[in-house]
Design a protein around this nucleic acid. Structure first.
Lengths: 261, 261
DNA sequence: GTACGGCCTCCCGCCACGGGAGGTGCAAGC
DNA sequence: GCTTGCACCTCCCGTGGCGGGAGGCCGTAC
């Protein structure tokens, strides 16, 4: 490439300036054997050749796409003959980006929701907001990411209004059940049976497929089993007519009513 | 919350099962003081209280949004009274997600382009593809991220066809200049002047604003100055009528022609 | 008495470097 | 020949958020 035919060598500082890679990083690449200058001076100074520098550019380009140094090393070993491994790496990385993007989009959506809540200033108690956070975390403990996504999609499909309507009807049912609990109505009473049927029907719009529904139902039961105290506290703090200890009793009654039906 | 009024305590294993946080992580949170169980047994076993567990749920929820443990610690110290810092954290995180998503989208687009190139199978030489990678890296060294994005947007605006047309005309101009270089035409020849004018006009569709254009032009000159060998090799490998050593001479001639004009 | 599981602390490892300490190499200026 | 100053060298600690293992203690069930 140069007229005199003498292969040029560069010191580590010159290479750093040419490639925009820090000297420290060049040391690191040398150390792990990723890009090793072909020569050293008698005193041990590194001398990079043109091909070393080209390799550095390749590494830098691949790094930008988020590939690990290990992946890059493996790709650069084999790729002179065969670009297939590189292609595989690219497609894998592309898939990863898409997964990340999807996750980031979901989290962003949730964050926007939380910020809206904070800005609404209807928050009576900071503690209540933190409880919301806690329950989000609990929720995620019982449902897999896939299940959560399915449910979220389902909720988006049925629409916000329908979801609110479901919540409202659920509260009505709770109130009605509460009355029956207090009155000591037997669980096989026709009225109670009808309430239980309506209770069951609440989940219908959110059904996905039998297998999934079964699992979600089991997860929900487990969540309730392990966290009825927190849930009861939260719900009763939002409706005046419900005491913290009421909900477990009501739920137990509902369960018996369903078994009877 | 519990009828007997006795505050419940949990061992680290029970807490791990309840919260889905690994025991190792619980140790870690204790170590850095993020969540520290309020009690220890005589033998040193950790006893978590209900409030410790609630704090863990909060931490877990905030972690999901990508907040660092340090940020979470800071937020949880102040938030019982004031949710403003938490709101700030959320908006900051949201902004970060957006930046990240934008970057991921750009990289994905580039990856798709590279994969298309690989699949096109017009690739005569694997080395040529790796050279493309090298030049991408070089390119990024001279143009800031902002400049690259502006240019990319501009290119998208003028359309792929127009970009191809520009490349074609550029090659034609190079070929014409090559002839003049070989003929020894003086740089103030009217024909050469016209070619120089057309050369100048090539960049017009991609202009952004005078300041930016000035900087991009300077960066381009620096890129050419530092990497004319590589660029010449690449270009001459793609057109039959150009030898590797031609382009620098031609560019020098063009430069003199522009100065003369 | 012993087997087992849960818990403890201490410590090394990851990944891709950043940064500092403390020493050497080399060329220029006096 | 001596100093100045810069580039370069190696060695080593630190980052974040844990994972995982070693080696030992505790308590209970058989």
């Amino acid at each position: 490439m140069h007229e005199d035919g003498v292969e040029q060598r560069w010191s580590i500082g010159e290479v750093s300036r040419r490639t925009g890679i820090t000297v420290r990083t060049l040391y690191h690449y040398d150390e792990i054997g990723l890009v090793r200058p072909q020569e050293r001076t008698a005193s041990g100074h590194r001398r990079y050749t043109a091909s070393d520098v080209r390799r550095l550019y390749r590494v830098r380009a691949l790094r930008r796409f988020g590939l690990s140094l290990e992946e890059i090393a493996a790709a650069l070993v084999r790729s002179p003959d065969d670009l297939a491994p590189l292609r595989d790496l690219f497609t894998a990385q592309l898939a990863e980006f898409e997964v990340y993007a999807a996750r980031a989009a979901r989290l962003s959506e949730q964050l926007r929701g939380l910020i809206r809540q904070l800005d609404a200033a209807v928050m009576p108690d900071p503690d209540q907001f933190l409880q919301t956070l806690e329950m989000m975390s609990v929720y995620e403990n019982y449902f897999s990411e896939e299940q959560r996504e399915l449910l979220a999609r389902r909720q988006a499909e049925v629409g916000e209004e329908a979801v609110t309507a479901t919540k409202t009807e659920w509260l009505e049912l709770v109130r009605a059940f509460k009355q029956h609990v207090e009155d000591g109505t037997p669980v096989d009473d026709p009225q109670v049976r009808e309430l239980a049927a309506r209770w069951q029907a609440l989940t219908v719009p959110y059904a996905i497929d039998p297998r999934t529904d079964e699992r979600i139902s089991a997860a929900t039961a487990a969540l309730w089993r392990d966290h009825q105290d927190e849930i009861s506290t939260r719900v009763s703090s939002q409706v005046a007519w419900l005491a913290p200890g009421d909900l477990p009793k009501i739920m137990e009654y509902v369960e018996r009513a369903r078994q009877a039906g």
